[in-house]
Design a protein around this nucleic acid. Structure first.
Length: 483
RNA sequence: CGGGGCGUGGCGCAGUUUGGGAGCGCGCCUGGUUUGGGACCAGGAGGCCGCAGGUUCAAAUCCUGUCGCCCCGACCA
């Protein structure tokens, strides 16, 4: 039997049996999170939080490199502020948590727990901006937000979640648009080069756009069960918020003008994406760039060789640390090597090194990849040169694997019947023409539960065809059932 | 908010039909033997059976209510 076919992890439901249960088993058993005693809320445990910290670090660097600064705004938003932008309040009202009391007193004005911070931030921006010289204003904040969700799932949709939200102000529409697309590009780069998740960037339809936005852009990823996940969004807010919050500036031509704002965010949902894009029946498969532990060393301790093996294992660990590899030496006693192998595979550690008497004799270590199960023997003298390459190789092949999967799962249905059949039987993305009419979009959703994930940027302008629903001429868009 | 399911040591469950000892497996603790794909032996700790009422000589079990969680749908990062 091939090692990959053996059922090592008995506690985890198979993806094929019940994908949703598989997901829940994984997040609990790898100790990424635990349910908290509040509906829809979770405790993010150290192993899950370490992934978030890695994502934060990789993204924060990019946010700063593109000229943004971090700041922090209040958790509470006076209800009247949230209500200023009509579409915005309509979009978020059903899911806000309200604070009505402070201490022993009823509040004169109720406070919304931020579901997103446009309102409070724009309120502050109006005070800070007077001249074109104050622009662009480029700020990001890392924080938690609360949305009272009816249907929650760990990491994918929780009542409270962690994210970053960038909020920028510009003098011109063109600049705001450029910013909106630039940050979408940053997200795409983050996902593809760090999380090894290929995404489709594009624009959201009117129906799917952010409440209060002029235009919303998105990166869409495909999960292993064929459902799409919105992994990040970037909004051109036009002058909607500037007008209601009075963000005005005096331009070079002396005229007082309303500014243009944008906002963009990604959340802890990305952790859910990592799990569902790369994971398999044996557990997580973490890309080395975000894995809390990149290399785990499992010493094979025999009675006679114990001291020698442990000494060598410690040496190897120290050597890897010195070249900035995140390494863990699992020298726990009382667990057999086989048990540890399974444990660390479930936790998705990209590479395992086994060091036992045989390896000592051969002056090397045995390396086993989590993604392919491939075993190799590395000489001690080659370790510091080989391991970074091996990790990069794993990173690349995870991305390639996910990309190939997405390509195989992207169909071009001929007609509506074909579309419905493919959705049910093959799942995945359906690239089909759409006339642009919201009514067709609505009908398709009602009939199939599939939504337009995005209008992709990269489609050929000459690619025209009959709308999936009404047959009028349209352009290609991605449909899918989604999380 | 609709439909379904579940609440019994840390986890997974049996026991509830037909009321009367709170049990099993895993995990945990101690000691010993082990260690190249989830080791073994011996001893041990741990639960007012989600909560509140009620029926009864007696309730995990029957009745009423209530709370929570999970899954699937309608709405959303």
């Amino acid at each position: 039997m091939n090692i990959n076919d053996k059922e090592f992890v008995k506690e985890v439901t198979s993806q094929a049996v019940d994908f949703s249960q598989w997901y829940l088993d994984i997040v609990l058993k790898t100790e990424m999170m635990d349910y908290a005693p509040i509906k829809g809320c979770m405790a993010i445990r150290p192993y899950g939080y370490a992934i978030w910290e890695n994502i934060q670090q990789l993204l924060d660097r990019r946010i700063k490199e593109t000229g943004h600064k971090n700041a922090y705004f209040p958790l509470f938003i006076p209800e009247s502020l949230l209500e200023k932008e009509a579409e915005h309040v309509e979009g978020f009202a059903p899911e806000v948590a309200l604070v009505t009391r402070g201490g022993n007193e009823e509040l004169a004005e109720k406070l919304v727990v931020r579901p997103t911070s446009e309102a409070i931030i724009c309120e502050m921006y109006a005070r800070w901006i007077q001249s074109w010289r104050d622009l662009p204003l480029l700020i990001n904040q890392w924080c938690n937000v609360v949305r009272w969700e009816k249907n929650t799932r760990p990491f994918l949709r929780t009542s409270e979640f962690l994210w970053q939200e960038g909020h920028t102000v510009h003098a011109t529409e063109e600049e705001a648009q450029e910013e909106t697309l630039k940050m979408l590009g940053v997200y795409q780069d983050l996902l593809e080069s760090e999380l090894a998740i290929p995404v489709i960037p594009g624009q959201k339809t009117e129906k799917e756009k952010f409440a209060g936005a002029l235009r919303t852009y998105t990166i869409e990823a495909l999960m292993a069960d064929g459902k799409a996940l919105q992994a990040g969004t970037s909004h051109n807010l036009g002058q909607h918020f500037a007008k209601v919050f009075e963000i005005k500036f005096q331009d070079k031509d002396d005229e007082l003008k309303y500014a243009w704002t944008t906002s963009w965010g990604v959340s802890t949902r990305l952790i859910g994406a990592l799990i569902m894009v790369h994971g398999d029946d044996r557990g997580l498969k973490l890309p080395p760039r975000v894995a809390p532990i990149q290399v785990v060393i499992v010493p094979i301790i025999g009675k006679k060789s114990k001291d020698e093996v442990l000494r060598r294992a410690n040496e190897v660990a120290a050597g890897l640390r010195s070249i900035n590899i995140r390494v863990e030496l699992d020298d726990r006693e009382g667990y057999s090597p086989g048990w540890k192998f399974n444990q660390w595979e479930m936790k998705g550690v990209p590479l395992r090194l086994e060091i036992g008497p045989r390896d000592l004799e051969n002056k090397g270590v045995t390396a086993v990849r989590r993604d392919t199960g491939e075993k190799s023997f590395l000489l001690d003298q080659d370790l510091s040169a080989q391991l970074p390459l091996l990790l990069q190789n794993i990173q690349d092949s995870l991305f390639e694997h996910a990309l190939k999967f997405r390509e195989q799962k992207t169909y071009r249905p001929q007609d509506y019947g074909d579309f419905k059949e493919a959705l049910d039987e093959k799942k995945g993305f359906m690239l089909a023409h759409w006339c642009g009419d919201a009514r067709c979009e609505e009908e398709i959703k009602a009939g199939t539960k599939a939504t337009i994930r995005c209008i992709p940027f990269d489609s050929d302008p000459k690619d025209k065809g009959p709308c999936l629903f009404c047959q009028k001429e349209g352009r290609p868009v991605y449909f899918a059932r989604s999380y």
